[in-house]
């Protein structure tokens, strides 16, 4: 089972977000990204991306997904993303939603923490 990593106390309150199940967020519509999260255990973070803008923005999209997972303290995860030209903010939002769904923490969002990333 993938688990949230040991984040320093005080930075956020997402202390033990355990990834319990496969979860999906987003759609295959234009300007959106569909992010599927699979808990695989261990420390690895594997990102597989299929993007309509791979050549121009593929690296950037992988970077945003990786950063978001890091901020959430998630490891032991396989991310499968199908992108149709989503902006960074959308990539981030869909990744967060998929992780929360995978952790089964519906409704409990730490907005303060998420805001802090973009400060």
């Amino acid at each position: 089972m993938g688990r949230t990593g040991g984040r320093a106390p005080g930075i956020g309150v997402i202390l033990s977000m355990e990834l319990k199940q496969q979860a999906v967020a987003g759609t295959a519509e234009s300007s959106d990204i569909m992010v599927t999260i699979d808990p695989v255990g261990g420390d690895a973070v594997e990102i597989s991306l299929d993007s309509s803008v791979e050549k121009a923005f593929g690296d950037r999209i992988r970077e945003v997904i990786a950063e978001t997972l890091k901020n959430l303290g998630v490891t032991g995860v396989k991310v499968t993303a199908v992108d149709k030209g989503a902006l960074d903010c959308t990539v981030q939002a869909r990744t967060i939603a998929a992780v929360y769904r995978a952790a089964g923490t519906a409704g409990e969002f730490d907005w303060k923490e998420i805001d802090a990333w973009n400060a």
Partner: peptide
Amino acid sequence: AIVGEPKPIE
């Protein structure tokens, strides 16, 4: 500013 700077095509 909206989309980021695209990587040059190879």
